Simulated scan of single mutants.
Amino acid sequence: MNQQKTPFQQIDYTLIFLVFLLMCISFLAIYSGTTEQYVDYEETGRDFFLKRQVIFYVVGFIVMIGIMSFDYELLKNFSIPFYVIGLLMLIYVELNGVVRNGSQRWMNFFGFGPEFQPSEFMKFFLIIALAHMLYLLTTNRTDKSLKGDLVLLGKILAVGMPPFLLILKQPDLGTALVIGSVIATMILVAGISWRLIFLCLLAVVGGIVTLVYLHNFHYEFFSSNLIKAHQLDRIYGWLNPDEYAGSFAYQTTQAILGIGAGQLFGSGFMNSVQAQSAAVPELHTDFIFAVIGEEFGFIGATVLLVVFFLMFYRMVIIALTCNNLFGTYLVSGIIGLLVFQVVQNIGMTVGLFPVTGLALPFISYGGTALVTNMIAIGIVLNVGMRTKNYMFQAEQQA
């Protein structure tokens, strides 16, 4: 005998409320971070980016509700077509994509229509494809041998590495690392033995050591085939911020100065020195955490981190309580997607990681990134509201 609620009676309103809090923080930070460096106050007004962000959030919530309206298990039927379409778009970008600022990341339809970035869609297509594949491979799996784990790992990499390499070649290191975080998350939740995961970590470390060796002893090959000049400059600025404070590390150095000046309570809304003087480039997008750190101090930054933590905690609960492996894998992939972006953005702002150009989810200004993040929330809510709760022993699902 089971006791069921309708899907809309199981909506995780706590998660929606946390997104609402992030929206409010985003509005405050974007308004304060919009300086005359980016807009002409007399012509557009200081609230130019704020108004656009409000529109993006309205669209995002509409899309989120749309994602919640159908059963997420229907995504299984489209996992292969989505993945193939995503790969074909990335191949098209590689062959005939729109070049901007030295990167070939965008496409349009035969010269018509607005440009868009296929890698943003590929993140979700990959999560759906990997979730469906793991659902098929691990449901009732009996082969727990090392050979079985190697086969499973090989299939995950076979699906995940093509989009990773195509995006890395654009070049778009930030998005490629996000794809890598999704792959790593799926490997962790697939039930592969820790010995094999440890060997994978050793392989990653070995790859980094190889890159360092090539940089030191075969620089021509390294710089012409493996990494672009602007990416290498960012690494130099990260490793030696004092030496490159006026060039490669300028953004990070100014952001750290602003966050440090905020101290415990901050300088107050729109009373910051670094933000209001536009000393930090890309303040309303990539480096928006610097605005929060300077104007709201350690306490304000901590509040933001707590909201993020609670949001991810709610997602983990949904993944753990879901009695359908496909739903668990879907939510796990999205957790890996969002957690990496938060950690990387805040880490690069405070100098812990190199600058990659990743936005802070739900906070930074930007339509495409925000709508895709709201799609992610919609999928998580969809899984949570369709999780069946039974009074007695959980029933097996096909």
Rank of each mutant, 00 (worst) to 15 (best):
N140K: 12
F8T: 00
A190L: 00
A129T: 03
I187R: 00
L211V: 07
S364K: 00
V209H: 02
T44K: 13
L165N: 11
L211P: 04
I363N: 05
G191R: 03
G154Q: 06
V54C: 00
Q344P: 06
I197N: 13
L177V: 06
W238M: 10
S332M: 12
A229P: 14
A398R: 14
N389V: 10
V93L: 03
G113T: 01
R386H: 08
G111P: 05
L381P: 03
G148Y: 09
Y244A: 10
I197P: 11
Q4T: 15
G347Q: 06
F121Y: 14
V39P: 00
Y92E: 14
M311V: 05
N225L: 04
I375L: 12
G33V: 01
T139L: 13
L134M: 10
M391Q: 14
A369Y: 07
D40Y: 01
C24I: 13
I363T: 01
H215K: 15
N96G: 06
G33H: 02
D286T: 01
E73Q: 13
F20S: 06
V350P: 02
S272T: 11
I55G: 15
F221W: 00
L75I: 10
G357A: 11
N389C: 08
F221H: 04
F56V: 11
L264C: 14
I127P: 03
N345V: 07
G102F: 08
T210V: 11
Q53D: 03
D40W: 04
P171D: 14
F82V: 05
G260F: 07
A129I: 08
V204E: 11
K144W: 09
I363Y: 00
D233A: 15
G366H: 04
F27T: 03
L173A: 15
I256C: 02
L173T: 15
L90A: 09
Y236I: 03
F56K: 08
G333P: 01
M311E: 11
L239E: 05
F82D: 04
G260C: 05
Q10N: 01
H284F: 10
H132A: 08
F70L: 04
I335F: 11
A261D: 13
A369N: 08
F269N: 08
F48H: 06
K5R: 14
T14W: 07
M315L: 08
L168C: 12
N323T: 12
F61G: 11
F340T: 01
P163L: 10
Y390I: 09
I259W: 10
L90Y: 12
V99M: 01
I335Y: 11
Y244N: 05
N382P: 01
T372W: 11
M68C: 00
F70I: 04
I91D: 01
N140R: 12
L168K: 13
A278H: 05
C24H: 04
